[in-house]
Simulated assay, not measured.
Amino acid sequence: MSLVATTRQLGISFFEYVRDRISQLRIIPSLSTIIREKSSIHPLGLSWQLE
């Protein structure tokens, strides 16, 4: 269920993401890459920075 929630929050279709991974097309970037890109656009503040 967390994968469904994460893809929803990122605006990605869960089924498209799973199909992309199963088919090994890798058209859709990994969720970690998308999260990093979005967080660089919208900084999350000092509490999210690495020490």
Rank of each mutant, 00 (worst) to 15 (best):
T33R: 15
R36D: 14
L44Y: 01
L46A: 06
R26I: 00
R8H: 08
T6K: 03
R8S: 02
I41Q: 10
Q24T: 05
I34D: 08
F14M: 02
S47T: 08
R26L: 09
P29V: 09
P43K: 06
I27C: 07
I28Y: 08
E37I: 12
Y17T: 01
E16W: 08
G11V: 06
A5Q: 02
K38H: 07
E51N: 11
L44C: 07
I34P: 11
M1S: 04
D20S: 05
S40K: 14
W48M: 06
Q9A: 13
G11M: 10
S47L: 10
K38C: 04
S2F: 03
S47C: 06
G45V: 03
S13E: 02
F15G: 02
L10P: 04
S23H: 05
P29C: 09
S32A: 15
R21F: 09
L25D: 10
Y17G: 01
S32M: 04
L31I: 14
T33H: 13
I35K: 15
K38E: 11
W48N: 03
I22K: 10
L44R: 08
T6V: 08
S30N: 11
V4E: 00
S47R: 14
I12L: 11
S13R: 00
E37A: 15
E37H: 15
I22C: 02
H42F: 14
W48C: 05
I35P: 05
K38G: 00
E16G: 05
V4Y: 04
S13I: 02
T6G: 01
K38T: 05
L10D: 03
